[in-house]
Design a protein around this nucleic acid. Sequence first.
DNA 1: TTGCTCCTCACGTCACGTGAGGTGGC
DNA 2: TTGCTCCTCACGTCACGTGAGGTGGC
Lengths: 247, 247
Amino acid sequence: LNSGEIARMAGVSVRTLRHYHQVGVLPEPARRGNGYREYTVRDLVLLLRVRRLAELGIPLEEIPPMLAPDGAADAVLDELDRELAEQIERLTARRTVIARLRAAGASPDTPPELAGLLGAGAGGGPEMRAYDRDLTLLLHHRLDEPGRAALAGLMSQVAEPDTLAASEELTARFAALGPDTPAGEIDRLAADFHHMLGRLSLEGFSDIDGSTGALLTAYQKMVFNDAQREFFARLIAGPEGPRESHR
Amino acid sequence: LNSGEIARMAGVSVRTLRHYHQVGVLPEPARRGNGYREYTVRDLVLLLRVRRLAELGIPLEEIPPMLAPDGAADAVLDELDRELAEQIERLTARRTVIARLRAAGASPDTPPELAGLLGAGAGGGPEMRAYDRDLTLLLHHRLDEPGRAALAGLMSQVAEPDTLAASEELTARFAALGPDTPAGEIDRLAADFHHMLGRLSLEGFSDIDGSTGALLTAYQKMVFNDAQREFFARLIAGPEGPRESHR
DNA sequence: TTGCTCCTCACGTCACGTGAGGTGGC
DNA sequence: TTGCTCCTCACGTCACGTGAGGTGGC
């Protein structure tokens, strides 16, 4: 049997044969005068046995011991079955995430717990603004489980129809802040924003730690303009804070 | 943010960061005076988004287009979901095969259709002889579906209690054939074997083609001794064949 | 002379892990 | 001076696929 013949019979490529020789799962056969390899039926049988194990997903180097008469095949199969079960679980979990994201129409990098809240058409208008998405992602990543639940709760509150309109209006006004913002608008926006926050339940959000806060602040410093940062300052100072006009 | 800091925050290794720079999913940040990379919160956000997609199983080079504002994320997710479903099917099929092999106690290189027939304790005694296993494997591999069904049918006939005892006795006598075999034993064994074959239904086995027959013959030439090959000759010649003693 | 098969290197794949060897920072 | 972090190569992983370049066989 030539290389090509045995390969065709076993349904593998000639390169696969060579690889099996290299790693030692199949012995090098004798050569003919012209250097051609000459395989026997025994090689074919061995190749078929090797292939069957390889197709089960057994690593090549574990195959020779398994084919030996005293091979501890059971232990390997046990282990393999556990790994397969694990892999299937992981893949199934991925499909679940994908299904949730698609159902919500959310972008695929959305945390699945927030899909449906960050999705197109949910809170934030037809397309969420990039900084809102980023800040939410960042916050979500830093929170622990109860904190994430609180975040999801907050977002679903904002997504409610009556709150949604108000939120979108405030968001649009915030986005419009800039060098040309009329005097007084920052104060009014801060007051209106404060008013809306008062109508929301903010349970579970007192525990944002210092480093997380620093991250959020650093982000805001990078992406917001002077007026927008001024707005945050007013918001934090509270409705009783100083009222001097921006710029 | 230093390399180590951003890596720790995102739950990846520093090497992963470097790799992401190399393949371009994460831009190289600015350097400090000492050559250290200085990451920003924006890099962290991007890294978190990349990680989320990578964990879904999306290849790194497909990630940047997906994160772009106009990214055709849906098509990629569709494709990915199909691949995941396919993979899960394949893995599940493997587990099914493993379960069948284990239930039968068969060696892991057994064709699953024959598990339970080639298993320990089934036809062939506590441990099937290597050449019987090899010949069965070879034949099974060369047969088409109906042929395989016929083979399985034949093996289950042999595995029936009444036939099993007779089969094991004949098999043992065959294995014992050799230079020291007493005169007449080959003839008697061929006759007894022929008798047993007559009691079995051999439907579907007329269609063994020439090349398959050649393979089986070649195998037999390699592993059987003179007396055993003589036995096959007598068997094929039929009960009316010439009766000259071996050697 | 023309296809076909065979041969031997040897690089590429994918997402990093793992040293190797050397230099700032506290 | 001692750890710790950072840096840049560069090889290894797993099971082969895919040329590159050359030689027998009909």
